[in-house]
Design a protein around this nucleic acid. Structure first.
Lengths: 194, 194
DNA sequence: CGTCGTTCTTAACCTAGGTCAAGTTCCTTT
DNA sequence: AAAGGAACTTGACCTAGGTTAAGAACGACG
């Protein structure tokens, strides 16, 4: 599996020499998940950060009434993990499933710690991407509290124009915080208005 | 101003020798903000991370209809910043205000970068607290999508029992994502039930 | 290429929580 | 201690979005 994408990605934030690159890559393992296959199920302990080389992952929780809520998607070039479980090494609540056939590179928590010891620059890399992630969750939280469902949907379309056609509508719905039925009604209303 | 609390706090995640502690402290500046005084206003660029030594800060945004939404509180021992603005050095949307007289230690973005260069361990410290913060925003987002207002209120009371009496109810309301009027009605309903 | 399960749509009805308005109580400031 | 403004409460009414149900269309797999 090609490691170009992941190295390019990291290269945006920290500079690595050839040896460091090779060492980093040696800590990764490849994994392929089929459509609808799970990478992680709730109640289990998350042992890996997953980087998507191709395909898309979906991370979601199931509430007390059995409804799904999408926490995040991980298309090409994105990382995915149950951060709560990964950090605490306690059973988590996230389900991670492939929406389509997906190729991953996995970095185990154990290897990540070893990496931090050997190449401290990676501590910086993960600090930076965690900060960026934090900012986007803060924004999403404020959006949920202050925007209408329609505005949130339009934001989603603007922000992820490529994703919009490759994701099931029901998952977009629960990502932006509405029921699939309501998204459907909203879309037909928007069409009529145009 | 005492730096015991901040050093103790950092000590939970990384070990520092006396010299490193002194160096770190030398990069901080003290600041005192009065009740209702602003530390940062929206439209400005955030230049500092603030650590609360005593008192409480409130970080909130104002939406298009003029309504406030509390993003976070920073009581004793917590950090506060407009992370979006701090990272990007672009104008932000967060207002940071003292709820009561508050004593702060400020670490400027410039000094933080210098600190990372001189004592790389701090990169680890900030990675870890950013990860923890990320996890709590993820949890809060899922709670907003799956719990009723009453459950969110009860969670808040359980999680921050000490804060509950020192914060204005209107701020608790917009933190959990309801109007102050609705929180009021909810509370009287809960009293009657008991 | 048919079929069976998922996903999507539409419609009628429902409810949690919002809005507006008017009072009351509590503080802050002088 | 008085006054003025926040913060809080309560009530009547409203609406964005949820729920339930049933049919239609899509698409994965044999």
């Amino acid at each position: 599996m090609s490691t170009d994408l992941i190295l390019h990605n990291i290269g945006k934030y920290i500079a690595l020499d050839t040896e460091e690159k090779e060492y980093f890559v040696s800590l990764l393992q490849e994994k392929s998940v089929k459509r609808k296959e799970f990478l992680l199920e709730d109640g289990h302990i998350c042992k890996y950060s997953a980087f998507t080389v191709s395909g898309v992952l979906r991370g979601y929780t199931i509430d007390n009434n059995g409804f799904e809520h999408v926490l995040s998607f991980a298309p090409e070039g994105w990382w995915m993990a149950d951060m709560y479980s990964l950090i605490s090494q306690k059973p988590g609540t996230l389900n991670i499933e492939a929406i389509e056939k997906t190729e991953l590179l996995l970095l185990s928590k154990a290897n990540q710690e070893i990496l931090f010891g050997k190449v401290p620059k990676f501590e910086r890399f993960f600090r930076i991407i965690t900060e960026n992630s934090l900012v986007s969750y803060q924004q999403r939280l404020m959006d949920n509290l202050s925007l209408t469902a329609e505005d949130r949907y339009n934001n989603f379309c603007k922000r992820y124009p490529t994703l919009i056609n490759s994701l099931p509508k029901k998952d977009i719905a629960t990502y932006i915080g509405v029921t699939p039925e309501f998204l459907s009604r909203m879309q037909s209303k928007m069409l009529k208005r145009k």
